[in-house]
Design a protein around this nucleic acid. Structure first.
Lengths: 249, 249
DNA sequence: CATGATTTTGCATGTTTCTGCCTCCTTTTG
DNA sequence: CAAAAGGAGGCAGAAACATGCAAAATCATG
């Protein structure tokens, strides 16, 4: 068995069973305890596990009580988020609204990032609790539970007094002709306001959201400065590029 | 069993049961009393528990960040929350700020509750995502990560336009003479504003917060309509009752 | 293919940690 | 005060660990 393969198994076992005993692993994987110890040491150095005497422990919290977390460990969303990271620099004022893709992005932000993040989404705010160099400004309003964002007249009024370098718009539906649309009018109006106070706008879109339409129009698609998508389909790409949007895939 | 694992269990047991007897632990964990004593000593040195003769007690940790405190699901907070539930009826406008005890309370609210909840705490808002009959209004501001609440001028100004039937105040420190205090001035001013727009105020207090003081005074203790505590100590109870606070234990 | 370098692994070694037992001391309780 | 319970510190065996070394496997390069 390959070393890398074996170490992957060890990580899997620890994630599954929350703890592991070195001598036990030795039998289960049919290698000497010395090898196991070396593996555990390496994995600890890499930060995957926590080494303790006679074995190792899982690193994260013992129980994940956020049922939504699994859903967000989506490979596509991760790769979209990674591309979006290129647009985020220190000392920017960044506006982020809701959506699981945006949440994914925030979770990938380096802990050393410095700047200001304005959001109307409680989950986004909470995800930033460990970013000590980021000032988080929450925009209040009435919580719209379906997408976990604050909306309403208070929200737009508060936004009136702000500005941002970059708005990372959560996108539910987008279509080259119709534009960006959402299921509720108050959400549309808050997004419009956010767009109006930001210098640049980027949107991350998974392929399933391309060429679909919802009830309330936010803005034309070409209001986006950058469209980050996984789609390689040249037809679709061309449609958006005709509107002078930079399409990144 | 791993040593770390055993010590984690001891901490869990103490958080759950409030106290623990060394000889009892020895049987429950199948190790000698000597080993238990050594564990308790270590855990005491690390600050997780308070060592006493013949066992150990739960420690009211003075300061630590929110993510650590959030792990402390313990019996006291649950029972305090249960008592507080009596004050919550349908169709009320309830103001709730931050704190783990408040979060615990919100998690125990019946899903059928109907009404309006105003909060400046993202975790509180998120905990209400499944309460379909509750309108959640988030008050924005600058996120104070240590206690996960929104604070600042915007926060107090927004609150100026609101009112509530009941304010459930998260209490950090309370003393009969000095009053209720918190570590930051902006937190104090937001709490004062919240108190001023609410008809009644209740506070849940675990024993470790009684008779302690922090830097910034919020208000006198007798501003509270009800004080809900686990403390049975008649002296302390009398002190607060002299100030015409209803003390519930 | 050949051959030398690198990586991986198991074994032998001396060291450290963990644990239970023992003895002596301290605290609690009646 | 005295007995009982709990605790501190030392000791020793067992288990776990780090380290060096050599054999085997793998890789790199011509």
């Amino acid at each position: 068995m390959l070393k890398q393969e074996r170490q992957q198994k060890i990580v899997d076992i620890i994630n599954e069973e929350h703890k592991v005993i070195a001598s036990d692993l030795s039998k289960r994987l049919s290698v000497s305890e010395d090898t196991i110890r070396r593996d555990l040491k390496e994995l600890d150095n890499l930060g995957f596990i926590k080494r303790v005497h006679s074995g190792a422990l899982r690193k994260g919290p013992p129980v994940e009580d956020f049922s939504t977390r699994q859903e967000m460990y989506n490979e596509t969303k991760t790769s979209l988020a990674t591309k979006a990271l290129d647009f985020i620099k220190d000392d920017m004022v960044i506006l982020i609204d809701g959506g699981t893709t945006n949440l994914q992005l925030v979770q990938e932000l380096p802990l050393t990032l410095r700047g200001t993040i304005i959001t109307n989404s409680p989950p986004i705010a909470m995800a930033l609790s460990n970013h000590n160099e980021v000032e988080v400004i929450m925009v209040g309003g009435t919580l719209f539970k379906q997408s976990m964002v604050n909306l309403g007249i208070d929200t737009t009024e508060t936004l009136n007094t702000m500005r941002a370098d970059l708005y990372i718009m959560g996108i539910y539906k987008i279509d080259p002709q119709i534009g960006i649309s959402v299921p509720s009018s108050s959400e549309a109006s808050v997004k419009r306001k956010m767009a109006s106070i930001s210098t640049e706008i980027i949107g991350m879109v998974t392929a399933d959201k391309l060429d679909t339409v919802s009830n309330h129009i936010v803005c034309p698609a070409d209001n986006l400065t950058y469209l980050i998508t996984e789609e390689i389909n040249p037809t679709i790409k061309g449609l958006y590029e005709n509107q002078k949007i930079s399409v990144i895939d």
